[in-house]
Amino acid sequence: MTGRHPGTRLVASLCSSPAGALDASVKVICVVGFVTAVVATPPRAVLAFAVDALLVLAAAAASCLPARVLARRMSVETPFVIFAVLMPFIGTGPRMDVFGIGVSVPGCWAAWSIIVKASLGVAAAIVLAWSTPTAEILAGLERLRCPRALVMIAGFMVRYLDLVAAELRRLQIARISRGDDPRWLWQGRAVATTAGSMFVRCFERGERLHAAMASRGFTGRFPTTAAPQRPRRWFPAIMWPLVAWVVALAVLIP
């Protein structure tokens, strides 16, 4: 029951950006490489994070990702920023005075570390989602030897997410139209019934899909179909994680 979800999906931009022309498998590897480099960088290497931030901004520019959109979508991380802000106050170790309030020095560094790393990670993921249509990300994961069954499950999920959400919205409107306005947990039965009937509908659609697939000769093994693919060029995208790793290692190995 914690957290929240962005109500709207990240829509891949239609602009023909340099990043948009890259193969998704290349981009997934680069993003994973970049994020692990950021996570591995020691918190006190402030300059290294400055380099990482420049790298993310460069990638965002190469994806034609407007700064406004990036800023708005970064709000996903708010709950953990709140958690991080508490750390200087509940942290142990040597303390210092900031405007007369005693705060823990290691706590401050921990808060800084969480905020900067989470922000860079979120920004990198936003760049990936913005510059790559979902179908290409799935195809890219498949080419990276991600288990086929998982990729297919993800494909079905993404395909039907909008439909399920629309169905849910209709159920909600029908419920509210009849005056349901629950304010306490024990009044939530109608909401639960909505969720329950949504599950039944999802299950039944799963069965109809199953029949539709069998009708077209499906026997339990997914054929390799013409998944979207682009030329697999590594340069210059690979510079993104490489530079981040070089910087991280430069700090780690003095």
Binding site: L138, A139, Y160, T225, A227
Partner: peptide, 10 residues
């Protein structure tokens, strides 16, 4: 129910 792949072509 019939169009379940990510793109129409697939």
């Amino acid at each position: 129910d019939q169009l379940f792949m990510p793109t129409v072509g697939q």
